[in-house]
Amino acid sequence: MSECRHLDLIDKLADLAKITLSDEEKLNLCRDIVRIAEYLRAVGEAARDLNVDPLYYVWDKWGFLRDYNRDRFIIISNLPTKVKDGYVIVPWRGGKIEEG
């Protein structure tokens, strides 16, 4: 694993992105991500000399408000999810006992 010097960064990103990675994939991603991030850095450099506000919404227009009602209820058990007594059931602590 010594081929990439930024494995700690990759571990942090994978944790934030909640993606479990195999060692091989971690190495590949490490190589790619470091290269791409380097390439994207040009943007930060370009913006340094710009005295403008960020543009988050391309038209700088106001959004509208919803003032009507249209029923769009759906039946949850039609989705590919596990349902028990109407509740969606998800794994939590796996039966393992962990103290808080």
Binding site: L9, S22, D32
Partner: peptide
Amino acid sequence: RFKGFGREVKRRIMLGVYA
């Protein structure tokens, strides 16, 4: 997420998290 996403998607997600 590991099983469901392809490599390019994982790359972009992680770069997005970084950004």
